[in-house]
Design a protein around this nucleic acid. Sequence first.
DNA 1: GATATAATATCGCATTGTGTTATGAAACTG
DNA 2: CAGTTTCATAACACAATGCGATATTATATC
Lengths: 316, 316
Amino acid sequence: MKLDSEHLEILAVIVEKGGLTEGADVLGKSQPSVSRSMALLEERIGLPLFEPGRRPLRPTELGASLARLGAKIRSANQEASLLVQRFRQGLAGRLRVGGSPIFMDGVVATMVAEFQGRHSDVQIDQSYGYLDQLETGLRNGGLDVAILPLHPAQVPLDMEFTPLLPGNNVIACRAGHPLTRRKAITLADIEPYAWIAPPANSPLYRDLQRALKSIGQEEFRVNFSGGTLASMQSVLAGSDALTVLPYSVVFLSRRTVPLEVLPLKIDHPDRQLGFLTVTDRQGPPAVRQFTGFLAAEFQRLQARIEHEQKLTLRRG
Amino acid sequence: MKLDSEHLEILAVIVEKGGLTEGADVLGKSQPSVSRSMALLEERIGLPLFEPGRRPLRPTELGASLARLGAKIRSANQEASLLVQRFRQGLAGRLRVGGSPIFMDGVVATMVAEFQGRHSDVQIDQSYGYLDQLETGLRNGGLDVAILPLHPAQVPLDMEFTPLLPGNNVIACRAGHPLTRRKAITLADIEPYAWIAPPANSPLYRDLQRALKSIGQEEFRVNFSGGTLASMQSVLAGSDALTVLPYSVVFLSRRTVPLEVLPLKIDHPDRQLGFLTVTDRQGPPAVRQFTGFLAAEFQRLQARIEHEQKLTLRRG
DNA sequence: GATATAATATCGCATTGTGTTATGAAACTG
DNA sequence: CAGTTTCATAACACAATGCGATATTATATC
């Protein structure tokens, strides 16, 4: 025999509040309504839930025991309501975020901690990929947001792209690298040094090729490739090798890894770092929270970058 | 916003069983019914509970979380059903039993342990009193059963009395008492010994008076009175004093206290030990269990007593 | 990629449960 | 023994739930 959970919850409130009338008030129902609910429950159980002929209704032993279970049910139900609320506001749930590896590791990941500090119940599943994979991921629902550098013309028709930062690349080396002591750097200066290359199929690798071509260096020697940002940083810091990285990545990396940017103008790819979502699919509400958060955070980052650049210019 | 606990329970089953159809089976409902319930829940929440366009229905993150809470609710509900069942069968609950002190301590209490071994969830509240108090206790609902020696004419009109044992009293003393060595005992033999008296307002005290009067001894010396059975037993075992007790009490006490019965015929009060309940009020179902148990247990006790008496006669 | 199959959604209709207000009965209070 | 409080009942509207029949749509199979 299945009891009605609603009835048990009502019973719990009545017992807790010490009376049917007050219980009805707390429940936001009319007194006759809860009275009838209890009558129904009693009828089904076939045993009295309340001592007969007591005016502030007092539960029998059975009534009190069932009330305890009703309270359990009630608290679970309330927890469910809260969960839904937080979900609605994007304060709970799971978020599947994909993006280009270097950028995710170097910039986005540093912001995730902060985001989770504010929205502790949002679980973030991070994955890596380039445009093609991210696009299909978004389409088949395997991803909620993609974060990557993109040219306006590359944005698929069914998707929306929100730029966050210019995709400026720079040539980076370890702090204290011989080249950093020079005021101006020529092609001949950098020619002897080996390069750390991002994965060969990554846009960043093509950026590297293009950048070097733009300053006239068609050939370059690669002494490390295929690693994630963490590896690149280690090799970079421990050798005199050079690499190409988004400026934002270098900027944030410097908090933990001693890197410097070579004062050498290279071609910037005409791309913006930003996030990509499917138009007309809002996904879990946490997406809005997260993208909103990212937008604000990147604005702060850009401001910090510009501030620093001003200082550098003044000094330089 | 209050969610429907029933909906959450359904959700839990669907998620657990991995599909709506199977879930409906387990719940004993039709597939359309649970489908609509889920549609309603989703509509109220305003967020998808299941991944869209997946045929064996798969829950979203929110759906899975809510299902966990639904499972909680479901288990509490099932526990409630079980509780009701056990209550119905008298296997759970609380029982308020009152009775005359000596008899409760000496006989009934030894049976309570056994009863609780079989019906572990029945809590027994024992209290002491004589006819008047027990009667009012039964009437105002403070007691479920009373156990006491009663004359048929004393049974109140609105109550029912079920006899369990004849209320035979005997004169008891410690084992090894000087009187036990005699074959026949006369009034003169017992005259020197002091008496342990039950509380002055107890029927047993009046029995003592009557018994001694019946064998011709109008006066008697009391050296201990007012104690419960435990005290009486201690004094009895540690001295040469005598007392009057129901035979059943002496019989059971001998398992732990070395007592003997003096072979002296005394007047038996015309009373039966038994239990008293209010007619037309069945009280908690555990009452039936308990009274039924007592009846069986007393039958066994009586058989043991009769067996012993046969042995004694044969030996004597 | 057409087709078969299984899983889910929707429809129409009867039944049950829930909510309300109005009102009666019973128990507590002073 | 009033007056008050507390609960039960009646009558009605409406929402939810039950069902079978049937349409729709992923997935599996060839």
